[in-house]
Design a protein around this nucleic acid. Structure first.
Lengths: 340, 340
DNA sequence: CGTCCCCGTTGACACGTGTCACCACCCTTC
DNA sequence: GAAGGGTGGTGACACGTGTCAACGGGGACG
């Protein structure tokens, strides 16, 4: 309540009808055009006195420009759609919060859109959203198929990140592989989530592991698909041993997959990490609380989003430079547990 | 590509400039007013022929009414904001998908808003969103404080669910307590997540457990707060034993809390479930994959959202009745594992 | 034949904003 | 004193929609 000295007045006026630029103009004793110019920071052509009067009036009335009016005349709205893939992200809310803050600093408003699980509905829902909202842009966290992406851009809506989309997956996969190799394992594998709809990032990481193996002269990594239940994990593990023998080291899509394999191995009388080594991704809290404690890749969310943040300021350019972190290595670190 | 026979034509027209109601009117050979009436289903006063012509023209042009234009003249938009609390929900995406479908069936568009973790920013962000978007309503999943709620309603924006908000928490807490009691335990406890910002539902469930104990003539449940790391869980468990002795049965906020306690107990040489029994909520996949397998409460998402869905159709009334499930008992079921 | 009414349709306004072109004024310069 | 140029500000249009009031016409009724 300390923030709004004229609370009573403002509440009364905003309850009946939100203040418009006409009200601001009247109170400031200027024309509506002047209000519009001043409030959009085109102040060069106005006297300091006028600018001040307009700003005071706007503040006093609690004036907020109508998004509808703005969007109507501009041809597009001030909204940016954040497209989230259908996957279980432990840090999802952090990611959203960081990006929201950045985007709002640029003067836009974030709208989160979850990609629907049922295939095909995806594009329909998003398409409708774009046609109806006409957003200033779309930020893709990996939920968009190539077809969706083309459709969005055809509608004249810029998509971020354009270049190097999801490049951090390469980094994560490489980090997992390097750690496993540094522990002495020479036979590597990659474990996907069995339902690939929930695993938009797996392919990129598996490719990075394969690349690492090639670089180091190791055999190409085996691929297994794990479903998160005891029986599914048991079968995947069995198949893994057929493919690779022991010892084998597995880079997993996430901590859930890793835990499923760890407990399947223990349940099958195998030793972790001697027979089967496992590394996850996410540093989920559960992974650190169970026994054995999981080795995993932790992420520094703001650093990991560096590319997207850069694209944002580049695309919706603003004088404020919000970036301090330059080394991609800071974004991800291996947390050593008891499974490697 | 099978869905859009006139794809080329439509793409060409929508690339340059989205079709407006003027275009539809011209093509159908009627006035713009007629187009508006027909497309808003006020067809009683028009000839069947006219209605048909207008609809064909709209379809052919791929006409989508501009949200901006609509919102401007209506005073509010067709968006409904779904407010999600800052907590880790295993079924979050399912919840969002079910509600999105329902809301879209009613002719609205869903916009997801995550409550910010930093206290206070909450209301600011949401407030700005409401002022700028002027949504038709807000659906609260538990992220709104009393102050936020009042602020939203003061802005003239209806909030759902108005009555019995989050009533399902009572049901969940009671189910946990009843199950523990049915296993023969008489000393019950409730385990909150230690960071209460991440635990918007805990209080309601703990109250339900307390009520059950009172009904059954048991001692009031002890309350502990668990942070999801080995040391934090160990301390919480230690304190629990001081409060209750053994055996003790713990209803947990979610599967993470439950797992933390289970492994803390095992690490401390206690027997699960003989010394410490544990039941979670969520039926998270990890809980079923570790050893011992977790006893937990699984939810049928559509059934659990029954109240909200009812409120939706009641508030934004539509002839279509979308509800078939009537028994709240179908929404939640106990999945018996090895920890009770 | 005149009046009334109803059916199908439409003209015109309002919503709130951004911005282009224009204007009034004053100060300089020839 | 008239012409020119810069400063500070504004009038008016366009954006796309929903809806009220009105209108023409044709049939029924007195």
């Amino acid at each position: 309540m300390a923030g709004r000295p004229v609370d009573g007045e403002q509440a009364a006026s905003s309850r009946s009808r939100p203040a418009t630029s006409v009200d601001v103009a009247r109170l400031a004793g200027v024309s509506r055009a002047t209000v519009s110019h001043v409030l959009n920071d085109q102040v060069e052509r106005f006297s300091a006195d006028t600018v001040e009067r307009v700003r005071r009036a706007a503040a006093e009335l609690g004036y907020v420009p109508s998004a509808a009016g703005r969007a109507l005349v501009m041809g597009r709205s001030d909204f940016i759609i954040l497209v989230v893939p259908h996957t279980t992200f432990i840090r999802l809310q952090d990611v959203i919060e960081v990006l929201s803050t950045d985007i709002e600093d640029l003067g836009f408003t974030v709208v989160v859109h979850f990609v629907s699980r049922t295939k095909g509905t995806t594009s329909a829902r998003l398409q409708h959203m774009i046609e109806t909202l006409r957003p200033a842009g779309v930020v893709d966290l990996g939920g968009l198929s190539a077809a969706d992406l083309a459709a969005v851009e055809r509608a004249g809506c810029p998509v971020l990140p354009q270049a190097a989309p999801l490049g951090f997956n390469t980094w994560i996969g490489r980090l997992q592989a390097r750690h496993l190799h540094s522990r002495g394992y020479t036979r590597l594998a990659y474990a996907f989530l069995s339902d690939e709809r929930d695993d938009p990032y797996g392919q990129g990481r598996a490719d990075a592991v394969a690349e690492f193996c090639a670089d180091e002269g190791l055999a190409p990594p085996a691929h297994i698909h794990v479903s998160i239940d005891p029986e599914g994990a048991r079968r995947a593990l069995e198949w893994l041993l057929v493919l690779c023998g022991r010892p084998v080291a597995v880079a997993c899509y996430n901590d859930e997959v890793a835990l499923a394999l760890v407990f399947a191995a223990k349940g099958g009388g195998l030793s972790v990490p001697d027979d089967v080594a496992v590394i996850g991704v996410e540093r989920a809290a559960v992974g650190q609380v169970v026994s054995p404690r999981l080795t995993t890749v932790a992420s520094n969310v703001p650093a990991a989003l560096r590319h997207i943040r850069h694209s944002l300021v580049r695309t919706y350019g603003s004088p404020a430079v919000l970036d301090e972190i330059s080394d991609p290595g800071e974004a991800f670190t291996v947390v050593i547990g008891e499974t490697t």
